[in-house]
Simulated assay, not measured.
Amino acid sequence: MGRRVELTEQSAGLLGQLIQEHGPLMFHQSGGCCDGSAPMCYPLGEFIVGDADVLLESLPLDGGQVVPFYMSRSQFEYWKHTHLTVDVVPGRGSGFSLEAPHGVRFLIRSRVFSDEEAAALAEL
């Protein structure tokens, strides 16, 4: 399990398929008005990250691949006390995210960190 972000089995499976189609991948969640709770999946490096972004987790997949998960710094200020799970559900999300042609979309499920988890994160 990741410290801040984890994948469901279904989302990890879809990422494996998308890696076969597109090569290395990344997530970015901006918190914008449209699909703000949906992480966007891009080929690694296609979305340029910078000082306005935070790397929350490098998500490991079977086979040794790693998918970095970034969030805009301003969005992170709202979500920093929250554990995120990347899931996948039927439906159409943003046309810019790689899963869209498959008739599914990634989404975030969240919960507030427990006191123990928050303390462990503070030690990092």
Score class of each variant (00 low, 15 high):
Lys80Thr: 01
Gln65Ile: 01
Ala38Ser: 15
Ser30Ile: 02
Glu46Asn: 12
Arg105Val: 03
Leu56Ser: 03
Gln17Val: 10
Phe113Leu: 01
Arg92Ser: 13
Pro39His: 09
Gly2Thr: 01
Gly103Leu: 08
Glu9Asn: 05
His83Asn: 03
Ala120Leu: 00
Leu84Trp: 03
Arg109Cys: 10
Gly23Asp: 10
Gly50Cys: 07
Pro68Lys: 06
Phe27Thr: 10
Glu77Met: 14
Phe106Asp: 06
Tyr78Cys: 07
Met1Asp: 03
Gln75Asp: 11
Arg111Phe: 07
Met40Gln: 11
Leu56Asp: 01
Ala100Glu: 14
Val66His: 06
Val86Met: 10
Trp79Asn: 13
Pro101Ile: 10
Ala12Gln: 09
Val49Met: 04
Glu123His: 00
Val88His: 05
Phe106His: 07
Glu21Ile: 12
Pro60Ser: 13
Gln75Thr: 12
Phe27Ser: 08
Arg3Trp: 00
Val104Glu: 07
Ile19Leu: 08
His81Thr: 07
Phe27Asp: 06
Phe106Pro: 04
Gly16Ser: 15
Thr8Phe: 04
Ala12Thr: 08
Phe76Thr: 02
Asp62Glu: 15
Ser37Gln: 14
Gly91Ile: 12
Asp53Ser: 15
Ala119Met: 02
Arg92His: 15
Val49Arg: 04
Gly50Glu: 08
His83Arg: 13
Arg105Ile: 03
Asp35Leu: 09
Tyr42Gly: 05
Ala122Val: 02
Gly45Leu: 04
Pro43Lys: 13
Phe106Asn: 09
Asp115Glu: 14
Gly93Asp: 13
Ala122Ser: 08
Phe27Leu: 07
Gly64Pro: 10
Gly32Ser: 13
Arg92Thr: 13
Phe113Thr: 01
Arg105Gln: 11
Val5Ile: 08
Leu7Ser: 05
Met26Cys: 09
Gln75Pro: 06
Val112Glu: 08
Glu57Ile: 01
Glu57Leu: 01
Ser110Lys: 11
Gly45Ile: 04
Ala122Ile: 01
Phe106Gln: 12
Gly32Tyr: 11
Leu59Trp: 13
Arg109Ser: 07
Asp62Pro: 08
Glu57Asn: 02
Asp53Gly: 11
Gly45His: 03
Thr8His: 06
Ser114His: 05
Glu46Val: 10
Val5Phe: 03
Leu84Arg: 04
